[in-house]
Measured scan of single mutants.
Amino acid sequence: MSIQHFRVALIPFFAAFCLPVFAHPETLVKVKDAEDQLGARVGYIELDLNSGKILESFRPEERFPMMSTFKVLLCGAVLSRVDAGQEQLGRRIHYSQNDLVEYSPVTEKHLTDGMTVRELCSAAITMSDNTAANLLLTTIGGPKELTAFLHNMGDHVTRLDRWEPELNEAIPNDERDTTMPAAMATTLRKLLTGELLTLASRQQLIDWMEADKVAGPLLRSALPAGWFIADKSGAGERGSRGIIAALGPDGKPSRIVVIYTTGSQATMDERNRQIAEIGASLIKHW
């Protein structure tokens, strides 16, 4: 067993022997301040990774656009098919120029040779490549099948209805392509620590998230040296922004954090800054 596999296998073990965790309302004060600064709703939840206990939450059962955070769930569904012998990570998928959609920095470079399922998941999570996500959605049967996968996990809230990039439209009061912070946090925890996926697939999923290259201005910008984070960000229309993450000190994750916002007129930089400040408060009061 590799060191990384050992780390993920012992996530519940280490967490069980940690000192009790206590909620700190100071972080919620910052979440509410972010709402004021952005002029928009902000949803927040913080779960203990081992027990699933909610440590703090704000608007945990209000719907927010998922945006690209759905790509972690998508690759979880792909990995479940791999575990069941219905898919192979090494299978190569070929596609054409007509398949390319807006923001496809990886797939646009491989029109000639195609990409493997493993490479597509890596591109979808680490670079948020939209064509990679659409190609992977095709392998599982489309958005409705991802929703069905989530329902089978016990998540009857999260739903995907459309493809990239239309799913980022974020129309107010439109339930399409949305989740709730509580539902997303619980589902992410199941994917990373539950028995739904094999140990190898859980490790692969967290490795992809740990290698995320496009979430630097968010929670990662607030992390002290030595902290662990595996995350996936999302951005959408109407001032929408979000991030889902597993993080913790001492090089291992111990909490799940989900943050979503929508309806702001603020710039992307300002949305990023507010999420980073929430992260800084979380870490300060850990």
Rank of each mutant, 00 (worst) to 15 (best):
Met1Trp: 01
Ser2Lys: 11
Ile3Gly: 06
Phe6Leu: 11
Arg7Asn: 11
Ala9Glu: 05
Ala9Arg: 08
Leu10Asn: 06
Pro12Trp: 12
Ala16Cys: 13
Pro20Ile: 02
Thr27Arg: 03
Leu28Glu: 06
Val29Glu: 14
Val29Pro: 04
Val31His: 01
Val31Met: 08
Lys32Ile: 11
Glu35Arg: 03
Leu38Ser: 08
Ala40Glu: 05
Ala40Ile: 05
Tyr44His: 03
Ile45Lys: 01
Leu47Arg: 03
Leu49Val: 13
Ser51Val: 06
Lys53Arg: 14
Ser57Met: 13
Glu61Tyr: 14
Glu61Asn: 13
Pro65Tyr: 03
Met66Leu: 12
Val72Cys: 07
Cys75Ala: 12
Cys75Leu: 05
Ser80Leu: 11
Ser80Asn: 12
Arg81Phe: 09
Gly85Glu: 11
Arg91Ser: 07
Arg92Cys: 07
Ile93Cys: 06
Ile93Glu: 05
Leu100Cys: 06
Ser104Trp: 01
Pro105Gly: 04
Asp113Ala: 10
Asp113Met: 10
Met115Tyr: 03
Thr116Val: 06
Thr116Leu: 08
Leu120Gln: 02
Ser122Cys: 08
Ile125Cys: 08
Thr126Phe: 03
Ser128Gln: 00
Asp129Gly: 00
Asp129Phe: 00
Asn130Thr: 02
Thr131Gln: 03
Ala133Phe: 01
Thr139Arg: 11
Thr147Lys: 08
Phe149Cys: 06
Thr158Asp: 01
Thr158Met: 03
Thr158Asn: 01
Arg159Asp: 06
Trp163Thr: 10
Pro165Cys: 09
Glu166Asp: 14
Leu167Ala: 08
Ala170Gly: 13
Asn173Val: 10
Asp174Tyr: 03
Glu175Trp: 13
Arg176Ser: 09
Thr178Glu: 02
Thr178Ala: 05
Met180Asn: 13
Ala183Gly: 07
Ala183Asp: 07
Met184Arg: 00
Thr187Gly: 08
Thr187Phe: 06
Leu188Ala: 08
Leu188Val: 12
Lys190Ile: 08
Leu191Asn: 02
Gly194Cys: 11
Glu195Asp: 14
Leu199Ser: 10
Ala200His: 15
Ser201Asp: 02
Gln203Phe: 08
Leu205Asp: 00
Ile206Ser: 12
Trp208Asn: 03
Met209Cys: 06
Glu210His: 10
Val214Gly: 06
Ala215Trp: 02
Pro217Ala: 14
Leu218Lys: 02
Leu218Gly: 04
Leu219Ala: 03
Pro224Arg: 06
Gly226Asp: 11
Trp227Lys: 00
Gly239Val: 01
Gly239Ile: 00
Ile243Glu: 03
Ala246Arg: 02
Ala246Gly: 06
Leu247Lys: 05
Asp250Thr: 11
Ser254Thr: 14
Tyr260Lys: 00
Thr261Ser: 09
Thr262Lys: 08
Gly263Phe: 04
Thr267Asp: 14
Glu270Gln: 14
Arg273Tyr: 12
Glu277Lys: 11
Glu277Gly: 10
Ile278Ser: 00
Ile278Ala: 02
Ala280Thr: 11
His285Gly: 09
